[in-house]
Amino acid sequence: MDNGNRWRTIDIVVASVIAVAFGVIFWAWNLVWSATEPAFAFFPPAQALIYGIWLVPAVLGGLVIRKPGASLYCELVAAILSALLGSQWASITIVQGLLQGVGAELAFAAFRYRSFRLPTAVLAGALTGLSAAIFDFVYWNKAYDLGSYRLPYALLTIVSATIVAGVGGWALTRSLANTGVLDRFPAGRERAAI
């Protein structure tokens, strides 16, 4: 691919659309999260298991667009949209989105934006989970007990991110490619070769 790292219009718009679709999902998910919070209260770390949904656009964006910055952009725009729609956490969401995007971005960068297979996706999921966990560890969970809450919560966040965002994002990319909507992306063209 020549000038492969320049984003075409279609890259920008489709990355934005993925982010927007997930921004709406986040908005709904924030409500679900708040609503289930009291229910999970008796073992709150378990709530981290559904955390992974928030991290899907980072992995999906990277796998579909395959350009430097795609993970970061998708996760950040999704966070901005959920703030615009009226997230209860507003500006903090944006900072979180930025950090989470950086996590996945590092994974794709580690493979120099050449590998987009399952192991890369899993690593991206794990790293985006790690950056999310670090933020929560410092910001949200500071006042909680280390052994019984903060550590299990952080670990479960990473597990959730690896499975839901990493493996889930990879599977979602494959299903999308099978519908033919990704035909103008490298992720979609691999389908024809199979």
């Binding site: 920008i12 659309v17 993925i18 909507v181």
Partner: peptide, 8 residues
């Protein structure tokens, strides 16, 4: 995504 492609 299809809409996004056309919009682009």
């Amino acid at each position: 995504i299809r809409r996004g492609t056309r919009l682009a």
